Measured scan of single mutants.
Amino acid sequence: ENVVSAPMPGKVLRVLVRVGDRVRVGQGLLVLEAMKMENEIPSPRDGVVKRILVKEGEIDDTGQPLIELG
């Protein structure tokens, strides 16, 4: 899985990584606010952040691509 998608609709509060960062499975990639709760979205695998497809403050839909890993 190279693309991390939104598991729920919500607002992107914080992006915790930058392009080029090495990430490990379970590491937080970004924080979504949904139903007044903050949810940290973890990396599904080890890899390198290739692209960040959303910006802080954006509203996303379920299934929307958020981050691409390489």
Rank of each mutant, 00 (worst) to 15 (best):
M8T: 09
D46G: 08
E56S: 09
L30N: 00
N2L: 14
I41Q: 03
E58D: 14
T62W: 11
G57F: 06
P65E: 07
A34T: 13
L53D: 03
R18Y: 04
E68W: 10
P9Q: 10
D21C: 08
V49W: 00
E40A: 08
V31Y: 03
R14S: 06
Q64I: 11
K11H: 06
L66H: 01
P42R: 14
P65D: 06
L32M: 13
E68V: 15
G63H: 09
V31G: 00
S5H: 14
V49N: 02
L53F: 15
L29C: 06
V17D: 03
K50Q: 10
N39Q: 14
P7K: 08
L30E: 01
T62L: 13
G63Q: 08
D61A: 13
M8L: 09
S5N: 11
A34Y: 15
G47E: 02
Q27K: 04
V19W: 03
L29S: 00
L13G: 02
K55Y: 13
R51H: 09
V25C: 12
M35Q: 13
R24A: 11
G26S: 04
G47Y: 00
L66T: 02
I67R: 01
L13M: 07
E1R: 10
L69S: 02
P42M: 11
V17H: 00
R18T: 11
K11I: 10
V23G: 02
V12H: 01
Q64Y: 10
L29T: 02
V15Y: 05
V54Y: 04
E58A: 10
P42T: 14
K11F: 09
N39W: 15
V31E: 01
S43M: 02
R18H: 11
V54E: 03
G47R: 01
G28W: 07
G10S: 05
M35A: 12
P42H: 11
L13N: 06
L66G: 02
V17G: 00
K36S: 14
K36E: 15
V12R: 00
N2K: 09
P42S: 11
D60Y: 15
S5I: 14
A6R: 04
L29N: 00
T62F: 13
L69W: 04
S43A: 11
A6Q: 04
R22D: 09
G26P: 00
L16D: 03
I52A: 02
I41A: 01
V54C: 14
E68G: 03
T62M: 14
V17C: 07
K50H: 10
R24S: 12
D60H: 15
G26V: 04
R24E: 10
D21S: 07
P7F: 06
D46W: 07
V23R: 00
I59C: 11
K36P: 05
L16T: 04
R18Q: 13
Q64T: 14
V54P: 02
E58Q: 12
V12M: 03
Q27Y: 01
V19K: 06
R22V: 13
R51E: 08
V48G: 02
A6S: 11
N39K: 13
D60R: 15
L53Q: 02
G70F: 15
G70R: 12
P65Q: 07
V19L: 08
V12E: 01
V19A: 07
L29G: 00
D46P: 07
G20M: 05
G47K: 01
Q27L: 05
R14D: 07
D21W: 04
P9R: 13
V23S: 01
G26N: 06
G20H: 06
P9H: 10
N39I: 15
R51G: 07
Q64F: 10
V4D: 02
A6V: 05
S43C: 09
G63R: 08
P9S: 09
T62N: 07
E40Y: 12
N2Q: 11
E56W: 09
K50Y: 08
S43V: 02
T62C: 11
P65C: 07
I59L: 11
G28D: 04
M35G: 14
G57A: 06
T62Y: 13
L30G: 01
A34C: 14
E33R: 04
E56I: 14
K36T: 12
V49A: 01
V15W: 08
V49H: 01
V15M: 06
M8H: 13
V23K: 00
A6W: 08
R51M: 06
E40L: 15
E1M: 13
G63T: 08
R45F: 13
M8W: 15
R51A: 12
L13R: 05
V31C: 05
L66Q: 02
I67H: 02
M35K: 11
G70S: 13
K55S: 12
G57R: 04
P9L: 08
R18K: 14
L69V: 08
T62Q: 12
G63F: 07
V48A: 04
P44Q: 04
N2T: 15
D60G: 15
V25N: 08
I67E: 01
V25E: 12
E1G: 12
K36A: 14
S43I: 03
D21R: 00
V17K: 00
V19P: 09
R24T: 13
V49I: 12
G63I: 05
G63M: 08
K50P: 01
V15I: 15
Q64G: 10
V31R: 00
L69P: 02
L66N: 02
K55F: 12
G10T: 05
K50D: 05
D46C: 10
E33G: 09
S5F: 15
I59T: 10
L32I: 14
V54T: 10
E58H: 11
R45M: 14
G20P: 00
L32W: 10
Q27A: 05
D60F: 15
L66F: 05
P7N: 08
P7W: 07
N39R: 14
L30P: 01
V15N: 03
P7M: 08
P9C: 10
R51S: 09
Q27N: 04
V4R: 02
L32K: 01
M37C: 11
S5G: 09
P44E: 04
V54I: 11
N39G: 06
E33V: 10
Q27W: 02
E1H: 13
G10I: 05
N39V: 15
R18V: 11
V3D: 04
M37S: 11
G20E: 05
R24L: 11
R22S: 12
V31S: 01
E38V: 10
K50F: 07
M8R: 08
D61M: 13
I41W: 03
P9F: 08
V25R: 14
V17A: 01
L13K: 11
L29W: 01
L30V: 13
S5Y: 15
E1I: 14
E38F: 08
E38L: 11
R14P: 06
V31D: 01
D21P: 00
V17P: 00
R22F: 14
P44G: 04
G70V: 14
I59M: 12
I67Q: 01
I52R: 01
K55G: 10
E58G: 06
P65G: 09
V23F: 02
A6M: 09
G63A: 08
L16I: 06
R22N: 11
I52N: 00
E33A: 07
R14A: 08
L13I: 13
V15F: 09
G63K: 07
V19F: 04
M8E: 06
V48I: 13
V49L: 00
V4C: 06
P65F: 07
D61V: 14
P9I: 07
L32Y: 15
I52K: 01
P65W: 09
Q64H: 13
S5P: 08
Q27S: 05
A34G: 10
K55W: 12
V54H: 04
K36V: 06
